[in-house]
Simulated assay, not measured.
Amino acid sequence: MKFVFDLDGTICFKGQPLCKEITQALQYCHQVGHEISFASARPIRDLLPVLPKEMHTYPMIGGNGAFVANGGKVTHLTAFDNKTKKQIEKIIEEFQLSYLIDSAWDYTYTGSTEHPIYRNLDPDQLAKNISIHKINEMIKVVLFPNEHTSKIVSRLKSLQVRTYMHGQENILDISPLGVDKWSGLQKLNVKQQEFIAFGNDANDIPMFQFAKEAVCVGKHEELQKVATLNAESNAGAVADKIRELSKVYAAHLEMNR
């Protein structure tokens, strides 16, 4: 069975690398015969620093599906088309917004260094913070809308984009239309009803809808509607659930041999 894990708030807490409990649970999952993949809003560049080196070659979805990697190499990139790129830049200029924009590797960030998203941004300093005018391929965008949220959301609805609103962080997370975690998993040849998904936020809904089992970590009203299971939002509870499902589906593998 394939197991797919979101990172932040699911198996990775407060931006820190995977803790010992989670790492050991993932190792157990792998040892009993399951394939592990990661699916995050982070670009691949920012996924790697929180994962053990032994897992750097595992299949990965980054940027909510805009980046796909396998065997340690990025295999697919999906950027905004040039027209949409210019429209997003126009919204940024019109509303004087702060932003985080990822290109294929480098990024541009103008938000506060106090914002939670900043602590997850290129922690190993592998890339450069460049000007928005030097971003050739716009892969993923995060906007900090403040009091302009409703107006900006209305404008984004007319563009070829997919938008997730994260109220607690007050950000708008934007990907090209048709790009989500499920579309990314399909590029890794993951089939409907043939994987177990763990997640904690609205951007996990697309993959939850096609999973055999979908584990909502913590409380999220929208996500819980499509989840089949729940786990408390702490490392111990999540590690226990990983081990539990690993055992259950290892038994299924044995029965089908």
Rank of each mutant, 00 (worst) to 15 (best):
Gln96Pro: 01
Asn256Thr: 15
Ser246Gln: 03
Gln96Ile: 09
Glu89Gln: 13
Gly72Leu: 07
Glu94Phe: 15
Gly199Leu: 03
Val50Ser: 09
Arg42Gln: 07
Leu121Ile: 11
Ala66Glu: 02
Met55Gly: 03
Ser183Thr: 15
Leu26Glu: 01
Asp173Tyr: 00
Thr113Ala: 13
Leu188Arg: 05
Ile91Phe: 11
Phe195Leu: 00
Lys85Cys: 10
Lys247Asp: 13
Ser158Glu: 13
Asp124Ser: 13
Lys20Trp: 05
Asp240Leu: 11
Asn70Met: 10
Leu143Gln: 08
Glu94His: 14
Leu100Met: 10
Ala250Leu: 01
Gly199Phe: 02
Lys181Pro: 01
Phe95Glu: 11
Ala251Tyr: 08
Phe67Arg: 03
Lys187Val: 00
Val248Phe: 10
Val248Ser: 05
Glu244Ser: 11
Ala69Phe: 06
His133Tyr: 13
Asn189Gly: 01
Gln224Lys: 12
Gly9Val: 04
Thr10Gln: 01
Val248Cys: 04
Ser158Trp: 05
Val226Ile: 07
Asp46Lys: 04
Phe3Ile: 06
Tyr107Leu: 08
Lys219Ala: 10
Ile117Trp: 06
Gly62Pro: 06
Gln125Trp: 12
Tyr99Trp: 15
Phe210Pro: 00
Asn256Pro: 01
His30Cys: 05
Leu229Ala: 09
Asp8Met: 03
Cys29Glu: 07
Ser98Ala: 15
Lys219Met: 08
Gly65Cys: 06
Asn70Phe: 08
Arg162Asp: 10
Gln31Ala: 12
Ile92Asn: 11
Lys2Gln: 11
Glu21Ser: 15
Thr57Leu: 11
Lys20Ile: 10
Asp122Lys: 07
Gln209Ser: 10
Gln125Cys: 14
